[in-house]
């Protein structure tokens, strides 16, 4: 089984993607989708040079919903900042020390930072131990770092066990 389907989550994603693209569920579309979902991972597996395992899929789902809520909150925040006079915003460049490792968790954390209130990840440090963050409006950089650590990094550490 694991030889035929080396990456089950990925195959499932490809099948769902195919069915969404067809916009209907029929026997033919599902069969063709299954064939594609098996062939594409087998053919492209060698190009994946990272290994990662999801230890707590349920926590991953919880993380997704927390993120969705935060994206909506962050949009109201940014909208409020945009509509206020431009002199009163306080941007800052902050270093965020990373406590997690591995390319997939760091990518997810950086994307999370970019999508959530007032922060964008600008650059990964050369040694891969810190991220440079541009924040649009902060008073206390330490509080921002602590918030990201408590809210997202802790959960990612739990999900990926890294």
């Amino acid at each position: 089984m694991s030889k035929l389907v080396p990456a089950p989550w990925w195959s499932l994603f490809l099948l769902a993607f195919w069915l969404l693209l067809q916009n209907k569920v029929s026997v033919g579309a599902t069969l063709l989708g299954l064939v594609l979902a098996i062939i594409i991972p087998l053919y492209t597996l060698r190009a994946r040079d990272y290994r990662t395992t999801l230890h707590h899929p349920l926590l991953g789902v919880q993380y997704f919903f927390i993120l969705l809520g935060d994206i909506i909150v962050s949009n109201f925040n940014i909208a409020a900042i945009i509509l206020r006079p431009r002199k009163s915003i306080k941007p800052a460049l902050i270093e965020f020390p990373l406590a997690i490792s591995g390319s997939v968790p760091i990518t997810i954390l950086a994307s999370t930072i970019s999508l959530t209130p007032g922060t964008i990840s600008a650059e990964l440090g050369r040694d891969g131990r810190s991220i440079l963050i541009h924040a649009l409006n902060v008073d206390d950089p330490e509080a921002t770092i602590q918030q990201i650590k408590q809210r997202y990094e802790r959960r990612l550490k739990e999900i990926f066990q890294c």
């Binding site: 940014i78 945009i82 509509l83 431009r86 915003i89 999508l115 964008i120 541009h134």
Partner: peptide, 22 residues
């Protein structure tokens, strides 16, 4: 509002925030 932010915010790094989120 995102496009308004793109037009109004003072520097490039700040302008980056508006289109990506809003």
């Amino acid at each position: 509002i995102g496009s308004l932010g793109l037009l109004r915010l003072p520097d490039f790094m700040a302008r980056l925030h508006a289109p990506t989120k809003n």
